[in-house]
Design a protein around this nucleic acid. Structure first.
Ligand SMILES: [Mn+2]
Ligand SMILES: [Mn+2]
Ligand SMILES: [Mn+2]
Ligand SMILES: [Mn+2]
Lengths: 219, 219
DNA sequence: TCCAAAAGTTAGGTATGCCTAATTATTTAT
DNA sequence: ATAAATAATTAGGCATACCTAACTTTTGGA
């Protein structure tokens, strides 16, 4: 079986591969896992030898089918735990990610399937991310746009929040941003592309970096 | 903070200390954790340097207050998880131990306190072991006798089952032994001290080694 | 009391996963 | 086309937690 580090590497590579639709670079992986590039190169060589990724020196990495299978298994565990912790145990949006980041490595298939069943085989986690089923199959998802690229003067519904930092999650919560929240994108500064959104009639500024974490569809 | 190995060592030492009421030997710790005596000696030296145990060469180890605090914290997590998995997620007696053995190391105080609350602040786990509260205080427990030392011709109630192996747990379940089960101790062979118990009128043999894992009080 | 067996420790080694500094390859901007 | 900047890799270390084999201490008979 695979160990915790391996699982976190494969998950990170999966997410980068999926976001960019091409090979993940050493730097991107190192950055996502908050470790040195040297350590990443080393580890990537081992993962390649073990058949989890395709790695070409200086060319980045992509998951093999086997690597993808493991990555999806970890994502499944992560997302089901997040939903379970919020729905059943009353943790908050900002509390669940770190907890799930650890639990995802210590949960058997037996247990995660029980959790899945308990929740009624949900399709999405509390941030709107799709939950792979027990076979690793992802539910259908509509194409979403990051709020940072949306046109002003239109209303949107938040369908996915990229859970990067607790601080950001807390800030979103504090201004009324949750999953499925509707907002009106009233304007954008030319200066630094700061956005202005209206939620329940109250106007809030949202920096471009923040807006890149919010994925929406038109209402 | 402490890592997984440290937590497992401290928990093992606590359990040995508590069972024998004296210092745990290197061999006992090694045996409980299924590692070599050499590795145990090494680790025990480190734990001593870090102030978690008192260690005297060739004399065995005992926990310091700090070590005991951590051990009780891990036991709390382990036992609450076992109860939660059985009560809420429908796992079986034999499935929960291994799961808890891992989850106990990846559960924050926040989460374990939520689980405690969800369960209504229980005093005992599914095997009858006492659950330390959030301050590390154990509930009052009546003195229990191992069935192996009990007199024949008397009825007993099972109050604690030492969860050593899944196989044994499954065997106990299969012959009707659960927590709080009442049984009649009908006889004992002189030959090898095998016991005969009656549950719901059916007679079962129980080896002495098995009987050492069953703790009872008189009905 | 003394000596062999058992218990415990030390020596020397391995695998894993990380680090910084130095080196090499690739990309970009003139 | 080339030099400087950037990205990636290699070299050389370190900490952790294991292992087996060799050695030392303790202990329990004879
Ligand atoms: Mn998350
Ligand atoms: Mn993780
Ligand atoms: Mn247990
Ligand atoms: Mn454990």
């Amino acid at each position: 079986m695979v160990n915790i580090s391996t699982e976190d590497y494969l998950k990170a590579i999966y997410q980068i591969n999926t976001e960019k639709n091409e090979a993940a670079t050493t730097t991107e992986v190192a950055c996502k896992l908050d470790i040195s590039k040297a350590a990443t190169t080393e580890m990537v060589q081992k993962l390649s030898e073990r058949g989890f990724i395709n790695y070409e020196k200086y060319k980045g990495v992509e998951l093999t089918d086997e690597g993808k299978k493991i990555a999806l298994q970890i994502l499944r565990r992560h997302r089901l735990w997040e939903l379970f912790l919020i729905k059943v145990l009353g943790l908050t949006w900002s509390e669940v990610h770190d907890e799930a980041e650890r639990l995802e490595h210590t949960t058997s298939d037996l247990l995660i399937n029980k959790i899945d069943e308990y929740l009624g085989f949900p399709d999405f986690d509390p941030h709107g991310s799709p939950i792979p089923d027990k076979f690793g199959v992802l539910p259908e998802m509509p194409a979403l746009t990051p709020l940072s690229e949306c046109d002003t003067g239109i209303s949107y519904r938040i369908m996915l929040v990229n859970d990067a930092s607790n601080e950001l999650m807390n800030y979103f919560t504090s201004i009324g941003i949750e999953l499925k929240t509707e907002l009106y994108l009233s304007g954008r500064l030319d200066f630094d592309r700061t956005l202005f959104i209206e939620i329940n009639g109250i106007r809030h500024p949202v920096t471009e970096k923040m807006a890149k974490h919010l994925f929406v569809e038109k209402v």
